[in-house]
């Protein structure tokens, strides 16, 4: 089997390691995408969320062989977008970021939601963020921030 080719935040890359390596580790160690956090390595917390071909994934539960020819977006890429700016502003205005460890994953989960459903209800927001644990906020500020971002960013998604 040849190298694994994929696009990382818009850049084409070829990974030469094992197909069984964890995407989470490879993103952090090989490509220095340290916004992707390791909270449990079992798919139970969402801190390592990334977007693969437009869809939210836990990068700890993805082997490298599964991302061949895929396009991966982490916060390192997403933070350059206008959508990020809207989400960041909304989170900032409600002080929705406390310790910050869950946040890059949480914001990508919000992006995955809004890209499918630009005007979500509170229930839909709570459903779509339900795989991203936050121990600090009690979720109010995060859920409200996503709601506000959807309003503010009308047309972006």
């Amino acid at each position: 089997m040849a190298d694994i080719h994929f696009t990382l935040n818009g850049q084409e890359v070829a990974y030469e390691g094992s197909a069984a390596d964890r995407l989470l580790d490879v993103l952090r160690d090989t490509y220095r995408c340290t916004s992707v956090k390791c909270g449990c390595k079992e798919g139970e917390c969402g801190a390592c969320s990334v977007i693969i071909d437009g869809i939210l994934h836990n990068s700890c539960c993805v082997a490298m062989g599964a991302v061949n020819n895929c396009s991966i977006v982490t916060m390192e890429g997403y933070r350059e977008t206008d959508r990020f700016k809207v989400l960041s502003k909304a989170f900032g205005e409600l002080s929705a970021v406390q310790c910050g460890f869950c946040i890059p994953g949480m914001v990508l989960a919000a992006e995955a939601l809004l890209s499918q459903n630009p005007k979500p209800t509170e229930e839909e927001i709570r459903e779509e963020l339900s795989g991203n644990l936050c121990r600090c906020t009690g979720y109010n500020a995060i859920v409200n921030a996503v709601k506000n971002a959807a309003k503010e960013g009308d047309g972006l998604w």
């Binding site: 798919g43 939210l56 539960c61 339900s130």
Partner: peptide, 9 residues
């Protein structure tokens, strides 16, 4: 099942 990211995979 679980949560969206798990259902996506």
């Amino acid at each position: 099942i679980a949560a969206p990211a798990i259902r996506n995979a």
